[in-house]
Computed example of a mutant assay.
Amino acid sequence: MGRQWGPAMRAAEQAGCVVRASRAGLPEAGSWSCSGVILSRSPGLVLCHGGIFTPFLRAGSGALTAAGATFLPGDSCNDDLRLRVQWGPTAASPAGRSERGRPGLCTPQCAGPEPSPPARPRGGPLQPPRPAELLLLLSCPAFRAHFARLFGGQAAEQWRFASGAPDDEASQEEEEDQLRALGWFALLRVQPGEAAAEEDAEGRGATVAVAPLGAVPKGAQLLACGSPFGAFCPDIFLNTLSRGVLSNSVGPLLLTDARCLPGTEGSGVFVAWPPGALVALVAAPLCWKAGEWVGLTLLCAAAPLLRAARAALVCLRPGSEVLAAQLPPEVGAPRSLPLQDPELPWAAAAVLVECGTVWGSGVAVAPRLVVTCRHVAPREAARVLVRSAIPNLRG
């Protein structure tokens, strides 16, 4: 990934974790899991996706779309909710030091009846899952407003943000729950373990750095670090890395072409400079339009989300100002990048071509002259619509 990504990769892997939600005393009821970001190790604060909490909401998923709802207290979920958070080895942990280079152990979920071949060398075994409590569920109002404007109304019939393919057998209720929770995240507090004191002694208690909203320019390289398939076999999938660019943005709603899979909801997306600065969290890893897969990942910017978390903590939990102050602050803007100029030729030349239900991209090569693929604008089309950020290119 290049030398410049070394510090960012280390920061991303140190911040990556997986969160599992289950019902107390009901193992047959199954579990729900997603990726998360460790905001601070002392105290242990984790931000993850809110979709795994919809089965536990006392008032149902409709509470997420209630008028004016921007956050919900932790007791909005049933008392039988049990949370576990797991992350990889740290240099500070005894296991991480003594087991460096030895193979990890597979989790019971993917361990077969016969012993499995040794896994590839890892930096020691995973930390055991730690119990956690739900502090609050929150959303970014600006993200939800932009999402509703872009994908609401009639467009909702053509867009699908479920993790599965359009022909998967998912109930309408499950799909509605996924859409309602798409812009929601959860703030957790992890109970300390035996290695907490050693982690703090070696500087592991520091918070992640957070890039301000708008500081990362379109086209900047991004690094996503999440766990495909959630809590399934974390010794293999935990903190899987994927590179891409910031494809586009509208307020706190960001798009990237970094490949993310189901289960990476809630994972962190980072930039190279400042080293490992957190830019956003994955809101939806896959999306479909008109039955075709779209290779873009939907992100929610981290800075406004954390601002909302601070405000919600102070509102819901009197005396929580100290806890709110432990959330990571925003850092300075990344150093200037060559893609920061908004007048780049390729930015002005790229257009959207729509021909009825057919759509695609095009290149404006001259005033009122656009080149695109023949199947995007068939000869028999009665009307062709060209959209661009440049007003005089509209046709």
Results as ranks from 00 to 15, higher is better:
1 M>Y: 08
1 M>N: 02
7 P>K: 02
7 P>D: 08
9 M>A: 05
9 M>C: 10
12 A>E: 02
13 E>R: 15
14 Q>R: 08
16 G>E: 15
16 G>F: 06
20 R>W: 10
30 G>C: 14
31 S>G: 09
36 G>Y: 10
40 S>L: 04
43 P>I: 15
43 P>C: 03
45 L>E: 13
53 F>Q: 00
62 G>M: 04
65 T>V: 12
65 T>A: 13
66 A>V: 08
69 A>S: 14
70 T>I: 08
70 T>P: 02
73 P>F: 13
77 C>T: 14
78 N>S: 14
80 D>W: 12
80 D>H: 08
82 R>V: 15
82 R>C: 14
82 R>G: 01
84 R>L: 13
90 T>I: 08
90 T>S: 12
99 E>R: 12
102 R>F: 10
106 C>L: 08
108 P>K: 07
111 A>P: 00
113 P>Y: 05
118 P>Q: 04
122 R>L: 07
123 G>P: 03
125 P>M: 10
128 P>K: 05
129 P>C: 11
129 P>D: 01
133 E>P: 04
134 L>N: 01
137 L>R: 04
140 C>K: 12
140 C>Q: 14
147 F>R: 08
147 F>C: 00
147 F>A: 00
148 A>N: 10
149 R>L: 15
149 R>I: 09
164 G>S: 12
176 E>C: 12
176 E>M: 15
181 A>D: 04
184 W>Q: 01
185 F>N: 02
185 F>M: 03
188 L>I: 08
190 V>K: 13
191 Q>F: 11
194 E>N: 09
195 A>T: 14
196 A>M: 07
200 D>C: 15
201 A>S: 06
216 V>G: 00
217 P>S: 14
217 P>K: 09
221 Q>G: 05
222 L>W: 09
222 L>I: 14
226 G>D: 02
231 A>W: 15
235 D>G: 13
237 F>C: 00
238 L>P: 02
250 V>C: 14
251 G>I: 10
260 C>P: 03
260 C>S: 03
260 C>D: 02
261 L>Y: 11
263 G>T: 03
266 G>T: 06
266 G>R: 01
276 G>H: 07
276 G>W: 01
283 A>W: 09
288 W>S: 00
293 W>Q: 10
294 V>W: 13
296 L>Y: 12
303 A>N: 00
321 E>C: 05
330 E>H: 08
333 A>L: 03
340 Q>R: 11
344 L>R: 10
346 W>Y: 13
351 V>W: 13
353 V>H: 06
353 V>W: 12
354 E>H: 12
359 W>A: 10
362 G>L: 05
364 A>Y: 05
368 R>T: 08
368 R>H: 11
369 L>E: 04
371 V>F: 14
373 C>L: 12
375 H>N: 00
379 R>Q: 11
382 A>L: 13
383 R>E: 02
388 S>C: 10
388 S>A: 14
